[in-house]
């Protein structure tokens, strides 16, 4: 009889690695949603509401350091000095992703690399917002690659945990209707309930208790949400 020698599977997640996975997921989702929300507010700024960027800043919870809508857009997209900018968010995704190459594979990492390169070129050319659809495409491809190519369940789920915490957070901040939040929560709970190791159980119960039509927008809700991850 032939014996098949199995190769040693070298798997392991240290605390630092779990943190990187989670935050890579959060920042990638933040880039994606920030671009999406920015397009919506930019559309309003065309003719309806020139100051729509102010409400964007308020909801996002960032300082309004801009004197006009046009200044806001360019700075929020491209300024490396602006700590809130999308280019800096992408750098944060990359800071985590680059340290995870061996887990997420070069193939998945490459979408982040391409986003960074594209964003840097766009910045040099002051490219308008609509052209950044390419970034959105790359991020979606990144998520596709996370889902389809990362075979280690723990690794994949930790990233997705980060993604849905961020998604719930931004949707709540931007006043999305309750049923929409409930849908996102259903995705989030796939990771917190089935894989509870990385989740603070008490905060999870508290967060769930806040999920009623009357209370879901309260600041406490976001507090519990942002405390869910523990590594």
């Amino acid at each position: 009889m032939q014996t098949i020698q199995l190769k040693k599977l070298n798997t392991g997640i240290s605390m630092a690695k779990a943190n990187r996975l989670f935050w890579m997921g959060r920042y990638a989702e933040r880039v994606y949603l920030a671009l999406h929300l920015l397009r919506k507010h930019n559309d309003l700024m065309i003719d309806e509401d020139h100051d729509s960027y102010i409400s964007f800043c308020n909801k996002m919870g960032i300082e309004n350091r801009y004197s006009s809508g046009a200044e806001f857009i360019m700075s929020y997209l491209y300024s490396t000095e602006n700590p809130d900018s999308i280019i800096n968010m992408l750098e944060r995704v990359n800071d985590n992703a680059i340290l995870l190459r061996e887990e997420i594979m070069s193939e998945t990492l490459s979408y982040i690399q391409m986003s960074i390169s594209y964003m840097q070129k766009a910045r040099e050319g002051n490219v308008i917002l609509s052209e950044l659809q390419t970034i959105t495409d790359y991020i979606l491809a990144f998520w596709g690659s996370v889902d389809e190519r990362i075979l280690n369940t723990k690794i994949r789920r930790t990233i997705k945990f980060g993604k849905f915490v961020e998604s719930a957070d931004l949707h709540i901040r931007f006043d999305y209707p309750f049923d929409r939040i409930a849908d996102i929560n259903n995705r989030l709970f796939e990771y917190t309930d089935k894989d509870p190791e990385l989740c603070d159980e008490i905060k999870l119960i508290a967060y769930k208790n806040k999920m009623s039509f009357d209370t879901y927008k309260e600041p406490q809700t976001l507090f519990y949400l942002n405390g869910l991850f523990t590594a």
Binding site: I98, R101, S106, L109, S110, Q113, M114, S117
Partner: peptide, 8 residues
């Protein structure tokens, strides 16, 4: 070169 950039 484009591929090099893609793979970082």
């Amino acid at each position: 070169n484009r591929w090099m950039e893609r793979f970082g």
